[in-house]
Amino acid sequence: MHGPALSGWLSMVLCSVTGAYCLLRTRSGTEGERGAARAEALMGFGMAAMALPAAVLTPPAWSWAVYAVVFGAASLRALTGARGGAHHVHHLVGSLAMVYMALAMAPGLSGGAHTAHGAHGAGASAGGVPLLTGALLVYYALYVLYAAGRLIPVAAASPGLPAGPSGGGPGLSWGTRPELALACRLTMGMAMFAMLLTM
C-alpha cells in the first residue's frame, strides 16, 4: 500500500506475527479450527506482504496478479464453507477484499490505485471514495468493534476465577488459547481497515 513508511512497517510486523501465530494454531484443534487457522495465516502473511513499504521493495508488476489469483482461490474455498457460519463468511469477505485491493493496486488496471480511487465514475461516491471501499471500511470498522467487545470480557476475567466459555483455562497451550486467536483476528481486522484507508 502507499501509506507512510512507519505505518507500513508496523502493519507488516503485526500481520507477520499474526500469520506466524495462526500457523502455530494449525497444529492443534479440530479439522475445522485448523482450516480456519490456515486461512487466517494466509491472510496475515498476504497482508504483511502488501503492507511492505514500497521504498524498501517495489513489487514487480505481476505480483498483484499473483495476489488476485491466490486470494481468488481462497475466496472460492471460503465460499464453499460459507454455510458453516459467520466466521466462514468473514473469511470470504476478507479474501474478496484482498482481491479487490490487489486489482486496485495493479498497474495498468484502471491506472492503478491512484486513478481507480481518484476517479469520479459510476463506482465512486460523490466524495471520490469508491462505494466498495466505503462498504469494506464500514464492515471492518464494525468487525473490529465486535471482536474487541468479545475480547474485553476475556481480558477482564479475574485470575482466581474459572474462565468463561470464550476464555482459556490455565492448562491450554499457546496454540489453543481462544483469546489469542480472537486477538489475532482483531489485529487483522484493524490492519485491513488501515490498508483500505490508504487506497
Rank of each mutant, 00 (worst) to 15 (best):
A183H: 02
P59S: 00
S95M: 01
L182D: 07
G128T: 06
S16A: 06
G175W: 08
R177M: 13
A37Y: 10
A194F: 12
H2P: 03
P159Y: 00
G3D: 13
R77W: 14
H90A: 15
L10K: 03
L172R: 11
G128M: 07
L6Q: 07
P178T: 03
W9G: 04
Y140G: 01
G160R: 14
A183E: 01
P170K: 01
Y67R: 02
F71N: 02
G168R: 06
T176C: 08
A39S: 13
H90G: 09
S16C: 02
A122R: 07
P130D: 12
Y146S: 06
S110I: 07
T133F: 01
L52A: 07
T176K: 11
G121R: 06
W174P: 04
V93M: 07
C22N: 10
H88Q: 15
A48L: 10
P170L: 07
F45W: 15
A104E: 06
I152G: 08
L52M: 15
M50I: 10
M12F: 11
M199T: 11
Y146E: 03
A156F: 09
A135F: 14
Y143S: 11
L57P: 05
R150K: 15
G149D: 05
S158K: 13
A74E: 14
H120A: 14
P159N: 00
L131G: 11
M195A: 07
E40A: 12
H88S: 02
A74L: 09
F71Y: 15
S28K: 09
G171S: 14
E179M: 00
G8W: 04
E179Q: 04
R25N: 09
A104N: 07
S7L: 13
L42S: 12
G19Q: 03
W64K: 03
M50G: 13
G118C: 03
Y67G: 01
S7C: 07
A156G: 01
H87V: 14
F71H: 08
M43H: 15
L23P: 09
I152L: 14
L57D: 01
R38W: 14
P59N: 04
S158T: 06
L145S: 01
A104V: 12
G118V: 11
M50V: 13
